[in-house]
Nucleic acid binder design. Structure first.
Lengths: 365, 365
DNA sequence: TTGAAAGCGTTACCAA
DNA sequence: TTGGTAACGCTTTCAA
C-alpha cells in the first residue's frame, strides 16, 4: 500500500491552494505560467494522479459509457457483439471514455440494473443492444437523465419506430431479402428460414425480408420451413436437427428443402454442423446462407454466403452518435450519415450480399 | 431531465436522518424494523436510487474491475481474449462487479493509463493480460494500491517467475511439447514453428516446448523452421507465405517441411489460408497444429488439432483469485486449485492435446 | 491571478 | 436505535 498523494499535497508542495492546483491541472488559462510550471513539477515529483471518482462526484460526469450486452443465451461472447464492441470501444476510448460492460442478467433484473445505471451516475451515457419489440427499457431510459443510443431499430408492436430514440441499425429487412433473392436466383424454391428470437426487432425484420423475397418470387412458404432459433450456434444446430427430423432435408423426398437461410451467421454455423452430422454436403446437397458478416464466416469451409453488415462501423457510428449527445470533444456529428432528421437521430446502413462457398444451385440443376 | 432524489429526500420523507437511511438501506441490523420499513417505502415511492459515485468516494470502493486488453495488433477482438473475457465477466458480474474495459493503446501510453487506473480509484482491482517478459506494468501495479491478477506467467528475462504476483496460466511449455510430440509420433521430422511475438512470455514458452520436443526426439531444427509471428491471423498468413517463399513447403524438395506448429489457433488459421492459397492440402500434404483451443478451431474444415486450454475456465479462475483478493462476497478461495502456496498465488492449468483433422502422417508414409 | 469555502451524495465514527 | 458531523478528494463559485 503506497501512500497516495492528493491534490492537497501538491498544493502544499507548490505553495499554492487546492483551487489553483485544480485549475492549473485542468489547463485553466487564468493560471500564471510560472505557477502552473511549479505545480506541474510538484505533481510530477509526488507522482500525483487525480482521483477520478472524486472528480466525477464534483463534476457530475464520469467519462464512462455503459454497454448493455445481450441477455443469455447470447452473452457478450457473441461474435457479432464483440466485433461491434471493438468498433465502439475504439472510438469512445479515442475520445477519452472507458467502457463499462454490464450484463443485464447479473445482479438483479434487467430493468433494475438499467435503472441503477441511469440513476446511479456511474456512466455518462449508455449503449443498448438487442432491442425487443416494445422494449420496456426505452421508456425507462428516456425518462432518466441518461443519454443513450440503441443498436437496432426500436419498434413498437405495430411496427412503428419509437420516436425520440437515437439509433443505428443495419437494413435487416432489405439485407435478408437480398440474401434470399440470391438463393432464389440460383434456382432454389424450397428455402427454410431459421429466425432469431421473435421478440427481437432484428429477428422479425429478417423474417419479414425472407417472406417478402419469397412472395415476390411467387413462392408460398410452408409453415414448417420457418423455425424459431435463438441467434446462438447451439440454437442453429438444434434448428437444423429439427429440419432433419422433420424429413425436410431428405434428398429422396420430393418436397425436400434445397436451401436454408439462417438469420445470423452463428446459427448458420450451427446449421452447417447439423448438416455435416447428417452427411449432407454444402452447397452440393443444400445451400446455406447467413446474416451479419462476422469475420468468422469467412474462415469456415465452405465460407459462408451472408448478408454482411459493417459491424465494426456500426460500433463506431453508435459511438459517434453518443459522443455527439454527450457533447464530447471529438464527437463529430458530421461524421455520422444522417438518414432521417426527424425526432431522434436514425442511421440505417445498407447490408451487403457477400456470396461465398456455402451457396450454389440446387441439386439436379 | 428527471429530478433525481437523494438520500436527504428520503430522510425527510421518512422523518429520519440521512444516517439512518444509509444504514437501513445497507441492511444494518441496528435499524428498528418499523423504521426500516418506513424508509424503504419512502425510497420506493420517491424512486430513490443511490448514487454509486458518491458511495464509491465515501467507501473507497467502486465495485468495478478493470481488464487491460492486449495491445494492437491483437485487439480485444482476439477470439482467445473474448472467450476469456466471457468467463471472467460471468464470474465477476455474479459477484456484483462491473467490468471496465480499458485499452492500453487509447488515450495515452500503456503505462500511463494503467497508472491512472491504479491511482485514479476507478476500479477496485485489475486483470492484466498479455504479459511480457520483464513486464514493466507489474512493478507499477505492485507499488500501487491496486489488487490485480495476471493472465499468464510473469517472468523476468532470466526465466524466473516474478515473486508476489498472482496469476493464472495454461501450461504453455508442456502444452506445446505435447502438440509437437503428437506430430513427431505421426512420423513428422521436419516441423516448422510459427511463434508469437517473442517479447511475450507465452510465445517464448511455447517455442521452448517445441524445441524441447524436437530435441528429445533427436531432431535438430533448422533456424529457418522458426518464424516469428504476432498471434494474429494475418500474421499466420504472412508466416505461412514466408515458408512458401522460402521453398520450405515445396513437396518436390527433399528438405520440405511436413508439418507446421502455429503457436496459437488464430495463426494456424492464417497458415491454413496460406496453404490453401498455394494449393496444398491439409493434412495430406502438410499437417498443421495450433494452440489455445478457441472454439473456432473446431468449426474449421479440416478441424484444427490443437493444444487446448480451458479458456473460459481461465477467465473464471482469474476472477476467483481477484475476488478473493478483494475480499469479495462470493470470492471463494477454495474454488481455486492452488498449485504453489509461495509468494503470490499461482495457478497453472494443464493443456490438453486435442487431435482433429488437420494433422496426419507425413506424405509417403 | 489566487484563495477560501461551499458543495457533490454517500458512509462511518462518535455521541446521545 | 438514532442523529450529528466529519470525512472522501475534487470542482467551482465568489471574493479578494
Amino acid at each position: 500500500m503506497v501512500t497516495k498523494t492528493s491534490m492537497a499535497d501538491v498544493a502544499r508542495a507548490a505553495g499554492v491552494s487546492k483551487s489553483t492546483v485544480s485549475r492549473a491541472l485542468a489547463g485553466d488559462s487564468r493560471v500564471k505560467e510560472a505557477t502552473r510550471l511549479r505545480i506541474e513539477q510538484a505533481a510530477q515529483e509526488l507522482g500525483y494522479i487525480p482521483n477520478r471518482i472524486a472528480r466525477a462526484l464534483a463534476r457530475g460526469r464520469t467519462e464512462m459509457i455503459a454497454v448493455v450486452t445481450p441477455t443469455p443465451p447470447r452473452s457478450f461472447s457473441d461474435p457479432f457483439y464483440l466485433e461491434f464492441l471493438g468498433g465502439l470501444g475504439d472510438r469512445v476510448m479515442e475520445a477519452g471514455y472507458s467502457l463499462v460492460i454490464t450484463s443485464p442478467g447479473a445482479g438483479g433484473s434487467p430493468a433494475n440494473s438499467l435503472a441503477e445505471l441511469a440513476a446511479g451516475r456511474v456512466v455518462d451515457g449508455a449503449v443498448l443492444t438487442e432491442v425487443q419489440v416494445d422494449d420496456p427499457r426505452l421508456a425507462l431510459l428516456r425518462q432518466a437523465p441518461l443519454p443513450f443510443v440503441v443498436l437496432g431499430t426500436p419498434e413498437d408492436a405495430s411496427g412503428g419506430v419509437v420516436p425520440g430514440v437515437w439509433f443505428v441499425d443495419g437494413d435487416n429487412e432489405g439485407g435478408a431479402r437480398q440474401v434470399v433473392e440470391h438463393l432464389l436466383s440460383l434456382g432454389h424454391r424450397r428455402i427454410a428460414c431459421i429466425t432469431g428470437p421473435l421478440h427481437l426487432v432484428s429477428a422479425r425484420r429478417r423474417l419479414a425480408g425472407y417472406l417478402q423475397a419469397l412472395q415476390a418470387a411467387g413462392v408460398a412458404p410452408s409453415p414448417e420451413w420457418v423455425v424459431e432459433g435463438d441467434f446462438t450456434r447451439e440454437g442453429g444446430l438444434r434448428a437444423g436437427q429439427r429440419l432433419l427430423e422433420a424429413r425436410l432435408l431428405d434428398l429422396r423426398e420430393p418436397g425436400s428443402l434445397t436451401a436454408i437461410f439462417a438469420s445470423n451467421d452463428l446459427m448458420a454455423i450451427g446449421v452447417l454442423e447439423a448438416l455435416r452430422g447428417a452427411g449432407l454436403r454444402v452447397p452440393e446437397d443444400v445451400s446455406v446462407a447467413g446474416f451479419d458478416g462476422i469475420y468468422l464466416a469467412d474462415l469456415l469451409e465452405p465460407s459462408l454466403t451472408t448478408g454482411a453488415q459493417p459491424i465494426r462501423a456500426l460500433g463506431r457510428m453508435v459511438a459517434e452518435l453518443l459522443l455527439g449527445r454527450l457533447g464530447a470533444a471529438g464527437g463529430d456529428r458530421a461524421a455520422v450519415p444522417e438518414q432521417i432528421g426527424a425526432v431522434g437521430r436514425r442511421v440505417v446502413v445498407p447490408v451487403q450480399l457477400r456470396v461465398k462457398g456455402s451457396t450454389g444451385p440446387p441439386r439436379g440443376r
